[in-house]
């Protein structure tokens, strides 16, 4: 359960204050599929970063499963990022010198999981992603769609409850984008909470719930068919 209460995020640029988020109120239940849309600069990424515990709000509260995350220490937040939240980026952010399998393994290494268990889970996920034959390939030997699928594998390898994706299809062609969205939605069907930020109405239209932002505020929060 994600609860954002009166959330503010203000960037200070010298004398100027940029309000990236203004009084955001949002509740997302477990297992929901939410698309966040809106024009460029409206605060979508900022919102996702706060929800993903990569950024701290300037004011307001963010409760994750009832726990106020704004009072947590940095190591506690890191632990939540590791265990409860998966992140998928537009630019994939795979580590270039590592193979697909090694990239997927990284969160488990940080969590201190034993090598045998890691190998088992990596194999399982690669199978699931349809990339079993690409395990030893480095990112520069993979197509964009394959890279994004590896990144999704890395995001869910710790079995998080929440999967956050910022423009996951932004760097992909139509077909690869469709495959990636299908994968994310399949994971959602299995119970993961899915929040996708997107410009693309076609992508956003697939979500049951659509939140629209403008100038740091939530202006539309619509559940049901578009």
């Amino acid at each position: 359960m994600i609860e954002l209460l009166g959330l503010e995020r203000v960037y200070r640029m010298g004398d100027e204050a940029v309000h990236a988020l203004r009084q955001v109120e949002l509740r997302i239940a477990d297992g929901e599929y939410v698309a966040i849309m809106g024009p460029s600069g409206s605060g979508k990424s900022t919102l996702l970063h706060v929800v993903g515990l990569l950024d701290r709000p300037t004011a307001g509260r963010y409760l994750l499963d009832g726990v106020d995350t704004t009072t947590l220490s940095e190591p506690q937040r890191a632990r939540l990022r590791r265990e409860r939240i998966g992140f998928v980026f537009q630019a994939f952010h795979l580590i270039p010198r590592m193979t697909a399998a090694e990239n997927i393994e990284v969160p488990m290494i940080l969590a201190g999981i034993a090598p045998r268990e890691r190998r088992r889970r990596v194999a399982e996920i690669l199978e699931r992603l349809g990339l079993a034959d690409r395990a030893g390939h480095r990112p520069d030997q993979l197509s964009g769609g394959q890279r994004q699928r590896v990144a999704i594998g890395r995001a869910v390898v710790m079995h998080p409850g929440i999967l956050l994706a910022d423009e996951p299809t932004g760097n992909l062609d139509h077909q690869a984008g469709g495959q990636v969205m299908a994968l994310l939605e399949a994971l959602n069907t299995e119970g993961i909470t899915l929040v996708v930020v997107t410009h693309d109405p076609a992508v956003g239209g697939r979500a049951r719930r659509r939140v629209e932002m403008f100038d740091g505020r939530i202006v539309v929060d619509h559940t049901g068919p578009a």
Binding site: L54, P75, A78, R81, R82, E83, H93, V106, P107
Partner: peptide, 16 residues
């Protein structure tokens, strides 16, 4: 820098 940011995003603590 990007790689370190990524490590943090997937759960690396400052100490790690």
């Amino acid at each position: 820098t990007a790689e370190i940011g990524l490590l943090k995003a997937v759960g690396a603590a400052d100490r790690q």
